[in-house]
């Protein structure tokens, strides 16, 4: 079975590096982009299983990237989890409205928790029973 492919769009190199290391160690195939435009291009070309999308990004804001991904029939089914530092309810609401699957407030979580969350996301995705059980 092919590795699950995740694109990290995160401009802070250190955060990106930690996420990259953790997710790779967790068994995912990880690709990186450090600005909005590169992230969008990468997502279009690579068709990942998940995009971890920061909001405040150079060149193109996370929301714009999200909007464009969801606009195109080619990329609209790629799941997106928003990575944010703001934790403003409005941002989260807007992100979910634009079609994001979930959100993670970075500073509120230890990195292990985030990895756990991503693992859970795929577990639910590939085994909807888990979701059922949780409900």
């Amino acid at each position: 079975m092919n590795k699950i492919k995740i694109i990290i769009v995160e401009d802070d190199e250190i955060l990106a590096r930690v996420l990259y290391a953790e997710l790779t160690d967790a068994g995912f195939k990880v690709l990186q982009a450090f600005d909005g435009e590169a992230g969008l291009a990468l997502a279009r070309s690579e068709h990942p299983d998940l995009v971890l999308l920061d909001l405040i990004l150079p060149k193109k804001y996370g929301f714009e990237v999200l909007e464009e991904l969801k606009k195109s029939p080619d990329t609209k089914d790629i799941p997106v989890i928003i990575l944010t530092l703001l934790g403003e309810d409005e941002d989260i609401k807007r992100g979910l409205e634009l079609g994001a699957n979930d959100y993670i407030v970075k500073s509120s979580h230890a990195v292990a928790e985030i990895i756990e969350k991503i693992k859970n996301f795929f577990a639910k995705k590939f085994n909807p029973q888990i979701e059922q059980e949780e409900k």
């Binding site: 802070d12 250190i14 955060l15 930690v18 996420l19 290391a21 953790e22 500073s107 230890a110 990195v111």
Partner: peptide, 12 residues
């Protein structure tokens, strides 16, 4: 952002 960087790097 740098604080999260510190925390995450330490975690790693």
């Amino acid at each position: 952002t740098p604080l999260t960087g510190i925390s995450w790097t330490v975690d790693l």
